[in-house]
Design a protein around this nucleic acid. Sequence first.
DNA 1: CGGATAGATGATATAAGGTAACATGACAAG
DNA 2: CTTGTCATGTTACCTTATATCATCTATCCG
Lengths: 170, 170
Amino acid sequence: MTSARNPVPDPSAIGFAAHDHADCVETAIAAAEARCAAEKLRLTPVRRRALEILLQEHRAMGAYAVLEKLNESGFGSQPPVAYRALDFLVAHGFAHKVERLNAFVACTRPGESHAPAFMICRICAAVAEAGATVAPDALGEAAEASGFTIERTVVEAEGICPACSEKADA
Amino acid sequence: MTSARNPVPDPSAIGFAAHDHADCVETAIAAAEARCAAEKLRLTPVRRRALEILLQEHRAMGAYAVLEKLNESGFGSQPPVAYRALDFLVAHGFAHKVERLNAFVACTRPGESHAPAFMICRICAAVAEAGATVAPDALGEAAEASGFTIERTVVEAEGICPACSEKADA
DNA sequence: CGGATAGATGATATAAGGTAACATGACAAG
DNA sequence: CTTGTCATGTTACCTTATATCATCTATCCG
Ligand SMILES: [Zn+2]
Ligand SMILES: [Zn+2]
Ligand SMILES: [Zn+2]
Ligand SMILES: [Zn+2]
């Protein structure tokens, strides 16, 4: 992946604002463990580590970037290792796939059932998950009118994040 | 194909309904030619053929599938041939990229400037472009609040199309 | 306990999607 | 006719994703 395609965003800028990162990782992992226990999901070592990686990096990561980190932690080095762990996380809402980037990001609202919406900076590739569920009503209506049953909706806005916006001004 | 109309989308424009396909291809090509002439865009043979291919197939096609067809028509056989033609079509609104499928589809509302929204059947991969522009208001508000400038929004709903829905019932 | 079953992991191989870079060709402006 | 611009073609390569088979590990049940 070239830097032009996948520039590395400022890790401290999630949701485009600073935050207590160590705390945010711990909290999310704990929440995931609790939910897996409650719902009899198996948060196995690879899966747990994959979630940790996404949380620690706090940005959208390609499956192969996650794979590399997993491998450094002693897990397999082949693509399916990463894809399977990521599939699990996505399937159960611990992470999301950002279709626009073919990348994955830890959910910032775990526990709340939601259709995620993202804001993606086209300069620095920072990704922020919108706070509220953002379901376009008009689409639901169009779907109903045509007999289409919506199961999942991808909403991804591309543009310029506050940080890059400021840099451009300077 | 269609022009401004009432809020209820025409089912035939939705894509999950029958329509006069030969006519739909011709009309769209003619419209594209007209617009390119008017805006001094160069609808070259490859680009024109690529648009024809997307229109004829009337479904989301991968770049390599388009490439194969282009090659059968006497154009180059290397990926950039297809990607460049598709980039042109997408850049000027004659086609859209469906991020969820890594595929391309001819626009069903050419001429109308719009942020496209798609409904994608997870069974048969049929893709319909929603009639109306579907801009999630809540996302715009979230963006404004955080200082993010939206330039483009991807909206893609995944689910079951009417045809597959009926088959499932049977 | 011992075997059956289901789910998870590992490794191999390959498919599918996408770009960078450079050479050639068409064409219009000067 | 030269120069600049844009389009096309090709080589080479990179990134993303899945199919498949083998192995392992928990869990359930008799
Ligand atoms: Zn989320
Ligand atoms: Zn940015
Ligand atoms: Zn369109
Ligand atoms: Zn279908």
